[in-house]
């Protein structure tokens, strides 16, 4: 049973580097009893979210409102400092496309490695399928990624990251780089992926995208839930489509 349950979750982000944590400071601090400084910031403050299969949750909010941190917390990157996190199901966090890429390796090696990191076996047919999606020339598979333009690189990474469906899909703002033609194709694939996943959580500044994709939009503000908006799927969808065609 796939589910995400966050109950009164808080995350205090320790500010390493901003303050002097050194041994000298600790020993002296104890001797002269200087008052403790504020050493953490509360990045996530008392958030409760429950998601059952079928949930499409959009996270909106200004920069620094905790969208990415919340996604990372759900993915298990950060341990919560308070509250309860219970996640069941296979999570695929796609928070940054660049993760794990080595520009010196040739494209197909990169694809194989990224698939392995995702726990998939990179067979020839899978790599070919991914390559077909990128619409790049076959011989470029053997070129190091260093030679690729940033748009081409994005195509490869996107195609690889979205090649397999997931139970829980966590997406962070990353559909902005590619050209128009590929963007359309990418969004279709993303919608397809979203439709296969049991739970999807997307963080984005792109409100139309969120409205097209999600059933609920959570507005975050300084780590708290400012408001939760339920999206009416049919009406908005049709409207967006019309806008798009126009």
């Amino acid at each position: 049973m796939v589910s995400i349950r966050l109950h009164n979750v808080c995350l205090d982000y320790p500010l390493y580097g901003a303050y002097d944590f050194s041994l000298k400071r600790r020993l002296l601090g104890r001797l002269i009893r200087e008052p403790g400084q504020m050493r953490t910031i509360r990045a996530i403050d008392n958030i409760t979210i429950e998601a059952e299969p079928g949930a499409r949750i959009g996270l909106a909010g200004p920069n620094g409102s905790g969208k990415s941190t919340l996604l990372r917390l759900i993915a298990g990157v950060y341990p919560p400092s308070g509250g309860r996190v219970a996640v069941h199901g296979n999570i695929v966090p796609l928070l940054g496309l660049n993760a794990g890429v080595n520009l010196d390796f040739v494209a197909q090696d990169n694809i194989a490695l990224l698939l392995r990191i995702g726990g998939r076996k990179p067979t020839r047919s899978v790599i070919d399928e991914i390559w077909a999606f990128t619409e790049l020339e076959t011989r470029m598979q053997r070129l190091p990624l260093r030679m690729f333009s940033s748009g081409m690189l994005m195509r490869v990474l996107f195609a690889t990251a979205t090649a397999f469906p997931a139970d829980i899909l966590l997406l962070d703002e990353w559909l902005s780089v590619v050209d128009e033609h590929f963007a359309e194709k990418a969004e279709m694939r993303l919608q397809n992926l979203v439709s296969q996943a049991a739970i999807v959580i997307i963080a984005s500044h792109d409100r139309p995208l969120l409205r097209r994709t999600c059933s609920t939009i959570i507005n975050l503000d300084r780590g708290r839930i400012a408001s939760t908006v339920a999206v009416e799927p049919p009406a908005t969808h049709a409207l967006e489509l019309r806008e798009k065609r126009a």
Binding site: V77, P93, L95, A99, G100, G118, D172
Partner: peptide
């Protein structure tokens, strides 16, 4: 060196 894999792919 693997910061992005830890933070973005939750390895």
């Amino acid at each position: 060196n693997s910061a992005s894999l830890i933070r973005d792919r939750a390895l």
